[in-house]
């Protein structure tokens, strides 16, 4: 019984974790299509912002896969992604306020994710909390 509980508690891809993966998936789709479109149609306008959009897209995809794969490697990958996201959203959020000229177009992370209901700020925190809880 205790074994069953520990086995279940280390899984990151069930219960609330599945909801987290679903939201990561939605952001992966949003960021990927946004970055793809921006880079394909008007890369010259704001290269820094668009490259950051692309980076965010990759991070969201890898984080979703890491959480979904649940093993030790998956946890490590998800931990790294959530950390990068948190640093990214706080760093880019602050940077986009200080130097708005470098960000003529929005990224997922500018304004601390305000264009996406601040969910980009919330996601890595929830991700890290979920990883800590399932350890």
């Amino acid at each position: 019984m205790a074994e069953l509980r520990t086995a279940r508690s280390t899984r990151t891809n069930a219960g609330p974790g599945r909801l987290l993966i679903a939201v990561y998936l939605l952001f992966a789709i949003a960021a990927t299509s946004r970055a793809g479109l921006q880079i394909a149609t008007r890369f010259g306008e704001a290269p820094l912002a668009y490259l950051l959009s692309a980076l965010a897209a990759v991070v969201y995809i890898v984080a979703a896969v890491g959480l979904a794969r649940a093993g030790h490697a998956g946890r490590r990958v998800a931990f790294a992604c959530c950390t990068v996201e948190l640093v990214g959203v706080v760093g880019i959020g602050a940077f986009s306020l200080v130097r708005p000229d470098l960000f003529p177009d929005e990224t997922v992370w500018s304004g601390f994710g305000s264009g996406y209901g601040y969910i980009p700020l919330l996601l890595p925190i929830l991700g890290l909390a979920w990883l800590a809880k399932t350890r």
Binding site: A14, G15, L19, A22, L26
Partner: peptide
Amino acid sequence: PLAAVLARMEPTRWGSAIVCAI
């Protein structure tokens, strides 16, 4: 369809949470 597939994979309250979020 994404909501439906994930909801079927997670037959708990969290499946309903996924439907709600999407």
